[in-house]
Nucleic acid binder design. Structure first.
Length: 629
RNA sequence: GCCCCCGUAGCUCAGGGGAUAGAGCAUCGGUUUCCUAAACCGAGGGUCGCAGGUUCGAAUCCUGCCGGGGGCACCA
């Protein structure tokens, strides 16, 4: 069996599921199911106020009330409402007149400056600085940084990572693993009940290969001392043998491959010896992938692989036949979709079941066991047809209340835009990649340290342990962030230098912003606690202070948008903007040397809230921070 | 053959009805008696693949074409 997230060729797919009903093209959803519109959500606040102003004035006020966007140019204010132009036609009035009537009815006096009407009918909002300051003060006193917890928690099963065991994890598994983990963290933070389930490929042909390898090439000594490594060796050995036999005879039977297939078939048929060996191998295989998950800081609530569902498959097929959803055809059992569309097999003519059967059994099990509102599949784009068929079949089968979503992502490509390979043509092993990232981070630390010394700067002298810790955190953060910061639906061109770059929109930049921030507190001896328990109301007089404050208060709407569309890269984009705002602030607004102690306290509040927001944002991406680097 | 996706700056990518299309890298120029220079500031660089259409308004929606990729019973 192929892993679900094998490295692959490309392409993105549009959202398959609509979580909100957009009445107008391009409008932002007014609300996300289960997410309360309260707290510091600036966008929602304006949308609500606008909707209230439109109520009684126009039909479908919430549709037009939702047409609020951040401005692209700060000269136009902070946010803009675009409702007047489309409403002009509906009401048969001039857009500027409509805009004026809307503004007259808005109840936002204590929140925004008097709105400006500009251009063809844009209504521009600029928040009052004193209002922003009070919101910031409230956010600082809040563990959740002003982000509301959901009013209606949903139960969501997230199916991600799902590698084949019995062979080393490779770079192709990375995207599913870290996107799925990030979505888990995000939805949990917003208050949803998330159940993570690693749907392992633990029952397929790769086990046949292991069985064949074990029977022919095992090294007893190696198995005793390091079974995991021996498993990997056997797998590679067998795969090489199969590959060697493929060149001459593409179509002709490959004796080794055929032998492996037979081992697999025997396993499925319950052959005593093979089942015993399967039970022997599994813990070793699990230990191997578990090591990587630990390093990546990824945990699963359940690891129910394909083998778990094996006993249920015959009943699944029978049930689908009984209900007339599946038909027998050419000796197989299939489910038909459209007249011109090929069917999906749920039982092959040799009696074997397919991954469609397993996935159907899995849906039934999950729905009956956990009663989820939604099941997310974080899987390679190329399986979109499979999921379309799977979801269609499941709904016909009666599972039409659960929302089934294929959270698809693009492929990992090499510099030649072909699927990423090592020089030898194999997949890049995940662990090697992580080691390389950490090694590069360590080299970067060395280089930077020498440059700092050459400039006569103070250098934080890290002990060996802390240095390793920094390298691990920075290196893994770089790898994760490089992937997560890209729209998941795009193909991902793998590039060492870009992935491990420490400039620009990278985890390192964010981690560094955090470190500089913490340095201020360390240097001054100021404690952070008072800024969290009894925060002062900050003064926002410098443009850099105001811009930073505004960005900090956009955290809530960012997380909401990321959750609606299952797009972690929105968080990355936000953090990048936040870190840039902080940099400008840092450059222009001395903190410890501010003119007054009141201003110092105000700026320390901004610093601490920035640090906490960066730390929280990175945490939602599965990335850690360090105190010094 | 049928279906799906993509084409935006030299490169890698955001933006997917709203104001003059953005960022990073790369290139060029500048910044350190100052809280970490793994930083900051500035400059150049685009016919948003092409052509029609819808709209007050299109990179964004529709149609066609060109180029690239993927998927399409007995692998998963």
């Amino acid at each position: 069996m192929l892993p679900r997230s094998c490295p692959a060729l490309p392409r993105r797919e549009r959202r398959q599921q609509t979580l909100h009903s957009a009445a107008l093209p391009g409008m932002m959803p007014l609300s996300f199911p289960g997410v309360q519109r309260t707290g510091m959500n600036l966008l929602s606040l304006l949308q609500e106020k606008l909707t209230a102003a439109l109520t009684g004035l126009v039909p479908h006020p919430e549709t037009y009330g939702a047409l609020v966007r951040p401005t692209q140019d700060e000269r136009h204010g902070d946010y803009q409402a675009n409702a007047a132009m489309p409403l002009a036609k509906v009401l048969g009035q001039k857009p500027l007149d409509v805009a004026r009537r809307i503004v007259e009815r808005l109840a936002l006096d204590d929140v925004v400056e008097p709105p400006a009407i500009a251009g063809p009918g844009f209504i521009n909002f600029r928040f009052r600085s004193d209002w922003l300051a009070r919101q910031l003060q409230a956010a600082a006193a809040d563990d959740r940084l002003g982000v509301s917890s959901t009013a209606r928690p949903r139960t969501v099963v997230i199916d991600f990572s799902s590698p084949n065991v019995a062979k080393p994890m490779h770079v192709g598994h990375l995207r599913s693993t870290i996107i799925g983990d990030s979505l888990t963290r995000l939805l949990r933070f917003l208050g949803h009940r998330v159940i993570t389930d690693n749907h392992l490929g633990d029952w397929g042909t790769q086990f046949g290969m292991l069985l064949y390898g074990y029977k022919h090439y095992r090294n007893e000594e190696a198995l005793r001392t390091d079974p995991v490594r021996e498993m990997a060796r056997l797998y590679v050995k067998v795969r090489q043998e199969i590959a060697a036999g493929e060149d001459e005879a593409e179509e002709a039977a490959n004796p080794v491959a055929e032998a492996c297939r037979q081992e697999t078939a025997k396993l499925h048929a319950g052959d005593e010896e093979n089942v015993r060996l399967w039970r022997l191998f599994m813990p070793w295989c699990l230990a191997d992938i578990e090591r990587i998950y630990r390093r990546l800081d990824v945990r699963f609530d359940h690891t129910l692989g394909e083998s778990f569902y094996h006993p249920m498959l015959a009943d699944v097929v029978q049930s689908l036949l009984d209900r007339g959803i599946a038909q027998k055809s050419e000796g197989a059992v299939v489910v038909w979709f459209g007249a011109n569309e090929p069917p999906a097999l749920i039982r092959k003519k040799d009696g074997a079941f397919t991954y469609m059967t397993t996935d159907l059994a899995t849906i039934r099990y999950r729905v009956e066991t956990w009663k989820p509102d939604a099941i997310l599949y974080v899987v390679d784009f190329r399986q979109s047809l499979h999921f379309k068929n799977l979801f269609d079949t499941a709904r016909r089968w009666g599972y039409d209340q659960v929302e089934l979503v294929h959270v698809s992502f693009g492929s990992v490509l090499g510099p030649d835009r072909r699927p990423i390979k090592t020089r030898e043509g194999g997949a890049i092993e995940l662990e090697q990649l992580l080691d390389e990232a950490v090694a590069r981070a360590e080299q970067q630390y060395e280089r930077t340290r020498e440059e700092r010394l050459a400039r006569g700067e103070e250098v934080p002298e890290l002990g060996a342990d802390e240095r390793r810790q920094v390298a691990e955190t920075v290196g893994l953060g770089a790898v994760k962030y490089a992937d997560l910061s890209q729209n998941r639906e795009s193909d991902y061109v793998f590039n060492w230098d870009k992935m491990l770059a420490m400039d620009g929109n990278t985890a390192t930049y964010m981690q560094y912003a955090y470190v500089r921030n913490r340095g201020i507190f360390r240097k001054s001896g100021a404690a952070v606690e008072p800024f969290r328990t009894e925060p002062p109301e900050p003064t926002l007089t410098h443009p850099a202070e105001r811009a930073l404050a505004l960005q900090l208060l956009r955290f809530s709407e960012t997380l909401q948008a990321a959750a609606i569309e299952y797009r972690p890269h929105l968080i990355c984009g936000y953090l990048w903007e936040l870190a840039k705002s902080y940099s400008v602030f840092f450059q222009n607004c001395p903190v410890l040397r501010a003119e007054t102690s009141v201003l110092t306290r105000s700026r320390l509040l901004l610093c601490d809230l920035t640090a906490r927001t960066i730390q929280r944002g990175l945490d939602l991406l599965g990335i850690r921070t360090v105190e010094r680097m």
